[in-house]
Amino acid sequence: MAIVYQKSKGLTDAELHYCPGCTHGIVHKLVAEVLEELDLLGTTIGVAPVGCSVFAYNYFNCDMHEAAHGRAPAVATAIKRVSAPGTTVFTYQGDGDLAAIGTAEIVHAAMRGEKFTTIFINNAIYGMTGGQMAPTTMVGQKATTAPLGRDKDHYGSPIRMSEIISTLEGAAYVTRVSVHDLASLNKAKKAIKKAFQMQMEGKGFTFVEVLACCPTNWGKTPAASIEWLKENMIPYFPLGVYKDVDGEVK
């Protein structure tokens, strides 16, 4: 029998704990496939965040660190700087982790042009702690700490991290992708691959923001979540390349 599909060697055999319809698993798979295809697994050190993907250190089949909430870019900075040349380093972070508690760490890592890759999962909510408001929560979107929906007067409007990061000289590649259908998924994988390749070429800091679903805390079915993401998130968080020192933007 011919093998038509195989799990990436970049993932361990551990069973993923994510909810049905959660995007974390899909993005794990893309990162794992890219690391395998680029033959980087043996020389990669990843950094897991605090958030639903905290157990990423059990899933990626490479050396891993579990960082304190929001501090993954600081941890990754040091890993990259003390490790043997040719070591690949990445952080995998949620929006509470990266865009709230860890804002300083991500901005300064990008400013310094740290040569690692950040995979930023923007699901507009705090998943792990049970659906509290994130800095990326949409205006009007309900959260357990914004029961009437995010009020712009009270909390302002969602933060757009790709746009912010792209203003920094040290950032070599900044892109926002989505995984809501096959076409966008293929684009996302290409973006992740490019980010890792540019890291290995020493180009600078590379950042891939992935718009993601959290059906559980959005209170929607997986299918309805995808529709909601398309209708609400993509218009506010436009997909595209925000910075590419190698080529064109958007």
């Binding site: 050190i45 950094v47 660190h65 960082a67 304190a68 501090r71 600081a74 941890v75 990754a76 900075t77 040091a78 890993i79 700087r81 003390v82 490790s83 300083a104 760490e105 901005v107 300064h108």
Partner: peptide, 26 residues
Amino acid sequence: GCFLQAESEVAAINMIYGAAGCGVRV
């Protein structure tokens, strides 16, 4: 070696965490 002035003490200690995890003296 490498000297790095971090953006805060919070970042600095987490850098120490990363470096120590790689087995170097820091």
